[in-house]
């Protein structure tokens, strides 16, 4: 756990913010530090971990925070974006829940500086003390959990490789493979 005004903030280029209720107030200093972090190349991954569905209050407060931090509103990330194929080829952005098919995001320059899942990714990954998964994945079961893991891997790889998979060499090769050549 790291706070926005912690000196450790800049040791972590990837920040994860998870919640299911409205965020507390954010000071100007904290907001400036978050903005600096994101502007210099950091990535904020936001996860709505509401148990029964996306939290409206969390959603509202996140959207306000992101506008303040990036100057951009959150937008839906279409399924043809590189985020969905940094490693795995994905057709949805489901987590423990499958309420929203896609991720939301805010860009700084040409890269996504904020990625936002409303499907409780953390819930799909969380383990019980026994070692098994702590929560059931609905409605898709273990297949959906596998897809959630894949999405998680894609998000981490996006953080460290950005649009690498959009390079011409990759696009050309993948198109050829799709055509069966």
């Amino acid at each position: 756990m790291v706070k926005l005004d912690s000196p450790q903030l800049f040791r972590f280029p990837l920040l994860v913010l998870a919640g299911n209720r409205a965020l507390g107030s954010t000071s100007t200093t904290q907001m400036t530090r978050l903005r600096t972090h994101l502007t210099r190349g950091g990535l904020l991954l936001v996860d709505d971990i509401g148990r029964s569905g996306p939290s409206r209050r969390f959603d509202e407060s996140i959207r306000k925070l992101i506008v303040r931090a990036t100057g951009q509103p959150l937008v839906k990330i279409p399924l043809n974006d590189v985020v969905y194929r940094t490693f795995y080829r994905l057709r949805s952005a489901h987590g423990r829940r499958a309420d929203v098919a896609v991720l939301w995001g805010a860009k700084i320059g040409k890269r996504w500086a904020v990625l936002y899942s409303q499907n409780d990714l953390h819930g799909a990954f969380s383990r019980a003390r026994s070692g098994g998964y702590a929560l059931p994945v609905l409605p898709g079961g273990e297949h959906q959990r596998e897809q959630a893991w894949r999405l998680g891997i894609n998000l981490v790889l996006y953080a460290v490789s950005l649009d690498y998979k959009d390079d011409h060499t990759h696009v050309g090769h993948l198109l050829r493979r799709r055509r069966g050549q």
């Binding site: 940094t86 490693f87 795995y88 894949r150 490789s161 690498y164 060499t169 990759h170 993948l174 493979r177």
Partner: peptide
């Protein structure tokens, strides 16, 4: 080019599911 798969490990998924080349 980034090497996306570790030295010792393979990825046990169908190649169509990944964007590895």
């Amino acid at each position: 080019f980034y090497i996306m798969v570790g030295r010792g490990g393979g990825v046990f998924v169908r190649s169509e599911d990944t964007t590895l080349i």
